[in-house]
Simulated assay, not measured.
Amino acid sequence: MTTDEPLSMADMTSFNDSGIPKTSMDDEIPLDKARLTLLLVNGKRSLFDFDPSTTIDAVKAIVLNQWPQDWLEQKPSSTKSIEFVYLGKFLDNNTKLKGQ
């Protein structure tokens, strides 16, 4: 696993009946990671941890490659169909998760 590959939270987090991850004190975000919540329009969520220097373009490719198995009917055909929004703004593909 390279530093750009996420640590999928699917195996480390339990989910409630709505598919939303349950949180606990043990589920703190590591200081050296950026946590993203993948949210589908139907409300399903999945958590991923990334190295903060990862670009949005790389995140899209990794998310598409590691798309949750129980969401296959909603899997996008390409990374062009995936958008990331932060504070109401769409993030550019060349943007890093955390600015230097």
Rank of each mutant, 00 (worst) to 15 (best):
K98H: 07
K22Y: 10
D51R: 08
I29E: 06
S8W: 09
N42Q: 09
A34V: 15
M25S: 10
D70I: 06
S46K: 07
D51Y: 05
E83I: 10
K89C: 10
F50S: 01
P6A: 02
A10G: 09
D4Y: 10
F90S: 02
F15P: 00
S53M: 11
V85F: 03
P30K: 09
M12I: 07
D92E: 07
P52F: 07
V41I: 14
D32G: 07
E5D: 14
K75L: 10
V41A: 13
S81N: 06
V59G: 00
D4N: 12
L36K: 00
K98N: 07
L91I: 05
R45E: 15
M9C: 15
A34P: 00
K75I: 14
R35G: 05
K80T: 06
I20H: 07
I82E: 00
T13F: 15
A58V: 06
K22N: 14
M9S: 14
F50E: 00
D17W: 10
P52N: 11
G43H: 09
D27V: 00
K44S: 09
L7F: 11
S24T: 13
K80V: 02
T37L: 07
K98Q: 08
D17A: 14
W67L: 05
P68V: 01
I56A: 03
I56R: 05
G88W: 02
S78L: 08
N16A: 02
F84T: 06
N94F: 07
G99K: 12
E73N: 13
N16W: 03
D26M: 11
D57L: 12
D70Q: 12
K60T: 04
D92M: 01
